[in-house]
Computed example of a mutant assay.
Amino acid sequence: MTSKDGSNILVDDEIGNWWSVLLWGNSPTDFLPAESLAQLKLMGAGLVCLLPETRRTWAEENMDSDVLVLGDHTGQIKKWFDDRPPRWWSSARTNSSPVPASCRIHRPP
């Protein structure tokens, strides 16, 4: 992966050892409701957009500053997203679709 400063890094090294929401080619802020984003922020979770290196500069300039943007210059991360094991939970939807209540983050009582 390539970071904003142009260095080649491992995703794990860049996001650290805490919860992160990773999306391929999109900003998590475009998909999650404000309440969920606020809860993620309270938890200290990271918001990460992974995309082809050729789109990284545009994404850094146009995405929310809270989103870490990393460019995939080898194609290995995209391959991982395509081939990930079935135990990984994922969901796809269009930007105009509301997030189902079951996907929202709720604070325990």
Rank of each mutant, 00 (worst) to 15 (best):
Glu14Leu: 04
Lys4Ala: 13
Leu47Ile: 12
Arg104Pro: 03
Leu51Pro: 03
Met1Tyr: 13
Ile9Val: 14
Trp24Pro: 01
Arg56Glu: 02
Phe31Asp: 03
Ala101Lys: 15
Trp89Ser: 07
Arg104His: 12
Gly46Pro: 00
Asp64His: 12
Trp24Phe: 03
Phe81Gly: 11
Leu47Cys: 15
Asp30Thr: 07
Asp30His: 04
Val21Met: 01
Asp83Ile: 04
Leu32Asn: 06
Leu47His: 00
Asp64Ala: 14
Leu10Val: 15
Pro98Trp: 10
Ala59Gly: 12
Asp13Ser: 08
Ser102Asp: 06
Leu23Met: 04
Arg93Ala: 06
Asp82Ile: 10
Thr2Trp: 00
Leu32Gln: 02
Pro86Gln: 04
Ser97Gln: 13
Met63Trp: 13
Gly6Asn: 06
Trp88Thr: 08
Ala92Lys: 06
Thr57Cys: 12
Gly71Tyr: 03
Glu61Asn: 15
Ala34Glu: 14
Asp64Lys: 03
Leu40Lys: 00
Val48Asn: 00
Leu22Thr: 09
Leu37Gln: 04
Gly6Val: 11
Trp24Tyr: 05
Pro28Met: 02
Pro109Trp: 00
Ala45Thr: 12
Gly71Arg: 01
Ala59Cys: 06
Ile105Gln: 00
Ser90Cys: 07
Ala101Glu: 14
Thr2Gly: 04
Arg56Gly: 05
Lys41Leu: 04
Phe31Pro: 01
Gln39Ser: 13
Asp82Leu: 13
Gln39Lys: 13
Trp18Cys: 11
Thr29Ile: 12
Phe31Glu: 10
Leu10Glu: 07
Ser27Ala: 14
Thr54Met: 03
Ala45Ser: 15
Lys41Ile: 07
Lys41Phe: 12
Arg87Lys: 08
Gly71Ala: 13
Pro98Thr: 15
Asn26Glu: 08
Asp30Glu: 06
Pro86Asn: 08
Leu10Cys: 09
Trp80Thr: 12
Val48Leu: 03
Leu40Asp: 03
Asp13Lys: 14
Lys41Met: 08
Ser7Ala: 14
Thr2Leu: 03
Trp58Ser: 13
Cys49Arg: 00
Pro86Trp: 05
Arg56Ala: 15
Lys4Asn: 06
Thr74Pro: 01
Gln39Phe: 11
Ser20Leu: 01
Pro33Leu: 09
Leu50Asn: 08
Ser97Phe: 02
Cys49Leu: 05
Pro85Tyr: 07
Leu23Ile: 09
Arg93Phe: 10
Glu60Met: 07
Ala92Cys: 10
Ile105Cys: 10
Ile15Pro: 00
Ala34Thr: 14
Gly75Asp: 06
Lys78Cys: 15
Gly71Leu: 13
Pro109Thr: 15
Thr94Asp: 02
Trp88Met: 05
Pro85Trp: 05
Lys79Asp: 05
Glu61His: 14
Val67Gly: 08
Gly25Val: 08
Thr74Glu: 03
Asp82Thr: 15
Leu50Lys: 02
Leu40Gln: 03
Asp64Val: 01
Gly44Tyr: 04
Val48Phe: 01
Ile9Glu: 09
Ala34Asn: 09
Thr74Leu: 09
Val67Cys: 11
